[in-house]
Design a protein around this nucleic acid. Structure first.
Lengths: 373, 373
DNA sequence: TGTCGTCATGGTAGCGCTCACAAAGAAGAA
DNA sequence: TTCTTCTTTGTGAGCGCTACCATGACGACA
C-alpha cells in the first residue's frame, strides 16, 4: 500500500530530530503529506520562519535580498499559506454576513463572486443569510450574534430598509450598504451616481435625436428610484426639452409594472420615440409591449434599461443599459468591513466610508435614432 | 480604557498556572476577549476538553449524562467552535473549486448558496473560478493544483465538456457534475430525471386537453437536451397521440433561438395549442412570439418551460416550469466531494455516487386548457 | 478469583502560523 | 572611540482544537 509507505517515510524523517531513544516510542506526526510549510520555506531560504511570514504578509522590514531568497524558495516549493493556521494564530476571526431577501435575484451571483473572492483573499468567513421579511428584525439580529457575525453586507433592497438598519446599528454591527440611494450615516456605502447615470443615458438618447423620451420610474420605496428620475429630468432640462408629464409612468421595478407603464406611454399621441426604464426588467417589458404593437426595436422605438442584469442580455434585441460593477462593489464592501472589524478589535476608532464607483453604459442593440416619419 | 482592563484580567487568569516568579515577566496572552473555548466549556461542565470535543463532533462514546452536562455548558456560555482551529488540528484541509463559464448564469446564485452553506457547515473552503473557454484545459488544471484545490464542482454547461472532464480525471481530481444528462464514470453526479420530468410536463399538458403540443429542443451539445426530447416523445406515444415532426423545432437554449423556433411552430396549420420549451428562456421567447401574434397566454396558447429560472418568474404571465432543486443539489455535491477528499486522505477507496434528486413541477399562470374554437 | 476485553474519559502533543519581545548588526551622534 | 538609535532577523510561546495513546472502571468469561 503506497499510503502506508508515505506515513512510514514521514515517520523516518521526523525520527531523526527526535533523537533520544526514549522518544522513539513517540507518536508519529499525525497523518502527514500535506503541503510545504513556512518551516520548509525557511529552511530552503536559510532564514527563520518569522522572516518568511513577514515576506508573505506585510513585506516591511525585510531586506530586498532576503525577500528575494524567500520568494524563490516559495516558488520552488509551491508553498501556499495555510489559511486556518493563519487566522488561528493571527486571532483575526472575521465573519461577514451577507443578508439577502431573494435567493434568485439576478445580481446576487455576481455579488457573491465579488465578496467571496475578497473574503478568501483576506481570510474572512462569508456567511449567507436569508432574511425573511416576516421575521422581526430583532430576531434576525439575535441570530446573527448567535453565529458570531462581526459585520453585515446589505445588497438592495435590504440596504434601504430603515427598520433593519436601525436594528443593526443598535446591535453595534458594522454595515456596508451596496447600491443604495441614501447611505446611512453609520454605515459604509458603495454606490454609483444613479442621478448622473440616468442623466448620461437620457443625454445619450437626446444625442441620438430623440425629443420625446418616455421614462418608467422605479419603486417609490427604493431610494435609487428618485435619483434616476432626477437624472432624467435634469437631462431634459439641460437640453431645453419640454417636460411632458404624460411621458413619465410609474413602475415598481417588476416586469409586470413595466408592461402597464409602457402600454400607457405608447398610447400617448404623439408617441414617444424612446423609452428609458429604471431597470432592465421593465425595459424588457417595454420591448414586449412594443413588439405586441408591431413596433420594431430599435427602428420604431428605442429602449434603454438600468442595471445590466441578465435579462438585458437574454432577450432580443439585447438592451442598452447602465452597468454597475456589482462584483467590484461587493469586493470593496467586504474589504471595508473586514478593515472595520480589525480596527475595532484593535480598539481604534473605525471610520465609515462612502465610496462612489464608476458606472459604464453598455451600448447594445435596443437603441438607435428615432424613426424619420 | 475598557480594553486594557480586559487584557489585564486575562493576564491575571493566566498568571496563576504560570506559577514560578521567573515566568512572571512573561508575556500577556495575546490580545484577548475572543469567545469562550473548549477549555471554558470543559471547566464549566467539569470534564476534559477532549470530552467536549467528542460531544461537539462524533457524539460517540460519551455517556448521556456527560453529554447533557456539556451541552448545557455550551448553551450557557454561547460557545461556538473555532473553525480555524478545528481544521488546523483536524488536518482536514478541503478546498473545493466551483468552475463556471458564465458569472451571470441564472442558476449560479442558487448554486452558490447551496454549496456555500454546506461548505461552511463542514468547514471546507470554496473557491470560485471562472473558466474561460479559450484557455486550454491543461492550464486551468495547472492553476487549480497551484491553488491546492482538492476537488471540483461542475455546473452546466461545463459538466458536459468531455475535454475538461478528461483533463480533470487525468489530474486525479475528484469531480461532481451537477445536472448533467450523461454522468461520467469517474465522477459524482447529481441529476434529476430529465426524461421523466419532460414526460410528466407533457403528460400534464395532454391531461389539460392539448392534442397538438409543440416542443422546442435544447442545444445539441448539451446532454440534457436529448433526455428532455425523449420524455416529450414518450408522453405523446403513451397517450397515443400522433407524432407530427413539424411540431418539434430546434433551439439552443437561448432566447433568440426560442423566438425563431416559436415563430416556426406557430406558423403550423393547424396551430399547436401548447408549446413546451426545453428551458425557460426559450419559453419566454415563445410567450413573446405569441403576444406579437395577438395570442393570449394561456387562453390561446399554453407555454411551459424547464429549469425554474428567474426568467420564468419575471415575465408575465409567469411560466409553468420544471423546478430542479439546484441549491440542494449543490449542497449534496459539496458534501460528496468533501467526503471523497477525506476518505482519500485516509487512504480508503473512494467510491463514486450518482444521485437522482426529485424534481417538482411549478404550476404557474402560463398554461391552461386549449381554446375551444 | 483472576484475566481479558470493552467502554468512557483524560493527558499530551502538535497542526502551521504569527505575536511580543530579544538579539544582533549597521548607522549615526557624542 | 563609545554610546545611542534604528533596522533587520531570530526566539519562544501559544492561538483553539483534535489525534493518538493511556488509564481506570466495569462486567464477562474461564
Amino acid at each position: 500500500m503506497p499510503a502506508d509507505r508515505l506515513v512510514s517515510a514521514a515517520h523516518a524523517l521526523y525520527a531523526g530530530p527526535m533523537g533520544t531513544t526514549e522518544n522513539m516510542r513517540g507518536r508519529r506526526p499525525r497523518l502527514g503529506a500535506r503541503g510545504p510549510t513556512v518551516a520548509d520555506v525557511a529552511r530552503l531560504a536559510g532564514v527563520s520562519p518569522m522572516t518568511v511570514s513577514r515576506v508573505i504578509n506585510t513585506e516591511t522590514s525585510v531586506l530586498p535580498a532576503t525577500r528575494d531568497k524567500v520568494r524563490t524558495a516559495i516558488a520552488t516549493l509551491g508553498y501556499v499559506p495555510n489559511l486556518a493556521a493563519r487566522s488561528l494564530a493571527g486571532g483575526q476571526q472575521c465573519r461577514i454576513a451577507l443578508l439577502h431577501a431573494n435567493p434568485s435575484a439576478a445580481y446576487l451571483s455576481e455579488f457573491l463572486m465579488g465578496s467571496l473572492a475578497q473574503a478568501s483573499l483576506i481570510d474572512a468567513q462569508l456567511i449567507v443569510e436569508q432574511c425573511d421579511p416576516l421575521e422581526p428584525y430583532q430576531a434576525l439580529v439575535g441570530r446573527l450574534s448567535g453565529h458570531r457575525v462581526d459585520a453585515v453586507l446589505l445588497p438592495p433592497p435590504l440596504c434601504d430598509d430603515p427598520a433593519l438598519l436601525a436594528a443593526l446599528e443598535a446591535a453595534g454591527l458594522p454595515v456596508a450598504q451596496i447600491a443604495t440611494g441614501r447611505p446611512a450615516a453609520f454605515a459604509h456605502a458603495l454606490t454609483i451616481d444613479d442621478e448622473e447615470a440616468a442623466h448620461r443615458m437620457t443625454t445619450h438618447l437626446i444625442g441620438r435625436g430623440h425629443r420625446r423620451i418616455g421614462f418608467i420610474t422605479g419603486a417609490a420605496n427604493q431610494t435609487v428610484s428618485a435619483a434616476r428620475r432626477a437624472g432624467y429630468d435634469r437631462a431634459l432640462a439641460d437640453a431645453g426639452l419640454p417636460h411632458d408629464p404624460r411621458l413619465v409612468a410609474q413602475g415598481d421595478f417588476t416586469y409586470r409594472s413595466g408592461l402597464l407603464a409602457a402600454t400607457a406611454l405608447l398610447a400617448c399621441v404623439p408617441r414617444p420615440t424612446a423609452i428609458f426604464a429604471s431597470n432592465d426588467d421593465m425595459a424588457a417589458a417595454a420591448v414586449a409591449v412594443a413588439h405586441r404593437g408591431h413596433l420594431d426595436v430599435p427602428a420604431d422605438l428605442s429602449v434603454c434599461g438600468f442595471d445590466d442584469s441578465a435579462m438585458s442580455r437574454t432577450i432580443w434585441p439585447e438592451i442598452t443599459t447602465v452597468h454597475q460593477p456589482i462584483a467590484d462593489m461587493a469586493r470593496q464592501a467586504t474589504a471595508l468591513l473586514a478593515g472595520t472589524v480589525r480596527e475595532r478589535s484593535a480598539a481604534r476608532e473605525a471610520s465609515v466610508r462612502h465610496v462612489r464607483v464608476a458606472f459604464t453604459i453598455r451600448h447594445r442593440a435596443s437603441d438607435g435614432p428615432p424613426p424619420l416619419d
